[in-house]
Nucleic acid binder design. Sequence first.
DNA 1: AAGCAGCGCGCC
DNA 2: AAAAGGCGCGCTGCTT
Length: 585
Amino acid sequence: MNVVVAEGDDEVVHLEVVGEGDDDGPAAGTAARTVSRDDWPGEVARTEAAAHLDGGHVRWVWDDTSRWYPELLRAGVRVERCHDLRLAHTILRRSTSSASSDLARADPGPWDVAPEVGEGAEEASPSSTPSLFEQWEAPPPRPERPDPLAELALQEAALRSAGDDAGRLRLLIAAESSGALVASELQHDGLPFRVDVHDATLTRMLGPRPARVGQRPALLEALAAQVRDALDVPTLNPDSQPDLLRALRRSGLDVTSTSKWELQRSEHPAVAPLLEYKKLYRLLSANGWAWMDQWVTDGRFRAEWVPGGVVTGRWATRGGGALQLPKGIRSAVRADDGWLLVIADAAQLEPRILAAMSGDDAMVAAGARGDLYAGLVEAGVVDTRAHAKVAMLAALYGATTGQAAMLVPRLARAYPRAVGLVDAAARVGENGGVVSTWLGRSSVPPGEAWHAAQSAASAPDATPDDERRARSRARDWGRFTRNFVVQGTAAEWALCWMAALRRRLASLEGDAGVPRLAFFLHDELIVHTPGAVADDVAAAVRDAGREASRLLFGPGAPEVPLDVVVAEDYGEGGDADALPVIDDE
DNA sequence: AAGCAGCGCGCC
DNA sequence: AAAAGGCGCGCTGCTT
């Protein structure tokens, strides 16, 4: 049963019950209802409960999960399933599988706008002066009230037009929508974060919190003084890149930037304190006391999670830098008393996804015993694990120089199907084409500037510079599409994993409470759980991983090994293969 | 004063 | 002397 949620005005919500659905019969008492805004969470809860009594399911169809679900969560109401029309629209509009549908061919409309920022977002501010672009172009589409029922019908038609690909697209949309529910829940529930532990870390690393904002903590100030001494510039502000670069060069360092990798190659007494200064400065500016005050409330770190925020289908976040939580401060992520964290990581996900989607049985076999990189060594493809990793990542990202130049061809000989798949995706991109993930999320075509560069190079009066630029842009886009198919399919696996886990967690309620997803990071997740059911959660995490592989690749799908740790804090450890590659032979 | 580009670096 | 995909974010210093 679908219930289409449409806004009436500020006071009321229209609910249109639609019997249509994949596996549900017609709904009893199909009807439209209008409920007051205050009553609607209760109405949602009653509808869910009634459906479950019948052994059925409700799918809430709404324009934008982030607009409706937060207020349900605040009222203590959770839903099992939804269909997020905006996210589905983006997928269907771009997918080459539904390119001939009315939905894909229509002019951009209200469903093509970016999501609103934040809960109860502020009204759009009237822009002061229209840009030149806005003056010349037609005005942007009127913010007419989108009609969810009409959009749902368009989406159903688009899915029907996809023929054999419809099943995969339906799975993708279901997973994307489930992800939207998770995203709202993650923001609502938050990640348990101990400010006392974090403050202790900051104090140990930086010195006590300065009394004044903008004042350097003591240890940072001491390092700044060492840098000034070593460079003999008493007034140097090490935070200013231009000033710092000038001072470095005056002191005889042969550097063209102030970046870490370049400094590390220089021998000078200023280098060590400067690198330490930069490290601590980063900690202070990105995750210092101000960050903690702003983003940690009531013992929870809360970020805004943005499903589909990356073109490949990965999530983005807004605020707090949730996807960049440095390893060094993760010990502050601690379970509540009596609770535990279940921390799970899909090992070497992207290479395994590539092996599975390309049907490269040899590469699947190399990963079957656990460590895929070790498997490459055992198979005699490369001589060391480090080389295996460099070769694999080079194939995924399109590196062509350095060690990759030697290693990738060996990989291609051993695994022609896998390497062939990403090479083919790269060629499509180099030619300005569009590629798609396993479930059918398609890449956006290159923009106007890209085509302009290509035309310039093929013009009769093209200079060698034009040609070089065009080739470079083409290769750039090829690396993007090369990676898109794998990164995007890995994101689909992760969405399915999370959706399958979410369903399992709902049935694991213990006396002390319900285990909740608390964090998600591309191929890694954290569940905050009552200690008594932590082992059940760990098992559910593994089961969900197997389900994700089956959903994407069918019954014989290769397994993605999971590192699952039950712990009190997020602490040290984690993925041993985290990027970037350190290429010191 | 506010917006933006580039840099640098954190994460996967 | 850089290199290979996707991001977010804070900072400086420039422009408007």
